[in-house]
Simulated assay, not measured.
Amino acid sequence: MVTITTSTIDSTHSPIITINAATTINEKLIPSTFPQWRAQFEALLIGYDLIEFVTGTHKCPVIDVLNLTASKAANSHWIRQDKLILHAILASTSTTITPLLFAYKTSHEAWTTLIRLYAGKSRTRVMQLKEDLTLSNRGSRSVSEFLQGIKVIADELAIIDHPVSDDDLTLYILNGLGIEFREIVGMLPLIR
């Protein structure tokens, strides 16, 4: 649930948005769920036009002594909104991850740390995921379950900036389907 509270201090600013992570994010962040957690959180932040807080592009307004009242209100508004986003991030993490974020004062600092920790572009992780795609086969799973497994791996690669091309993804799928799909696979070069 998201609550929108209109600020009575200064009506020129957008309303303060409170995110109830327990009702909007369907699982706590643990290292293995980072791609799903990040996708949910980013969608929520984009939907409420708050993504610039975590990306660091919407900076805290500086208090201007020449326009003290307005600049103090803008500064206070930004701090309150950022703290509510930080609270939502903290509330949506597991008890093993939350302590890693306690020292951070802004949502941008916490977000950047989580991305650095869990979406790192380590060559080893990329190679492991690509090997998983290469070795993936349907086995006893249904075609739907097999395709879902391939999609999860491809999505994780995309999140860490190593997207799989559509042609390569098609090859991984066709190679992993098994012998009962051999006729379909054999006909593909003729279709082009």
Score class of each variant (00 low, 15 high):
146 F>N: 04
142 S>D: 04
120 G>Y: 08
45 L>D: 00
136 S>Y: 11
17 I>M: 10
102 F>A: 12
179 I>K: 13
167 D>C: 09
28 K>H: 15
29 L>V: 09
149 G>I: 08
147 L>Q: 13
107 S>N: 01
1 M>F: 07
13 H>Y: 04
110 A>E: 11
86 L>P: 15
70 A>C: 08
168 D>N: 06
122 S>A: 13
72 K>F: 15
135 L>Q: 03
178 G>W: 02
154 A>T: 01
98 T>E: 05
140 S>W: 02
151 K>M: 14
20 N>T: 10
32 S>G: 08
109 E>R: 13
132 D>E: 15
126 V>D: 08
17 I>H: 15
96 T>K: 12
45 L>P: 11
36 Q>L: 07
106 T>K: 14
51 I>L: 14
192 R>F: 06
98 T>I: 15
177 L>V: 11
71 S>D: 11
6 T>A: 12
3 T>R: 11
176 G>Y: 02
28 K>P: 12
34 F>E: 07
74 A>W: 00
138 R>I: 15
64 D>W: 03
59 K>Q: 05
167 D>A: 15
173 I>M: 07
37 W>Q: 09
186 G>D: 11
29 L>F: 02
169 L>T: 00
125 R>W: 11
64 D>N: 14
159 I>C: 03
98 T>S: 08
103 A>K: 10
114 L>H: 00
92 S>N: 06
155 D>Q: 04
71 S>P: 04
170 T>G: 13
111 W>R: 06
132 D>Y: 02
126 V>G: 12
3 T>V: 14
58 H>F: 02
29 L>A: 08
119 A>Q: 05
54 V>G: 09
53 F>Y: 15
57 T>P: 02
140 S>I: 00
152 V>G: 01
153 I>E: 05
107 S>K: 05
110 A>V: 02
121 K>P: 13
88 A>M: 09
152 V>Q: 04
67 N>A: 09
103 A>M: 06
144 S>T: 09
118 Y>S: 06
122 S>W: 05
153 I>V: 05
150 I>D: 09
172 Y>P: 05
116 R>M: 13
54 V>S: 14
48 Y>L: 02
116 R>V: 00
23 T>I: 11
84 L>W: 05
176 G>R: 02
159 I>H: 08
84 L>F: 12
100 L>G: 01
147 L>E: 05
120 G>P: 03
33 T>G: 13
157 L>A: 01
178 G>Q: 00
99 P>H: 07
116 R>D: 11
53 F>M: 04
88 A>H: 11
85 I>C: 15
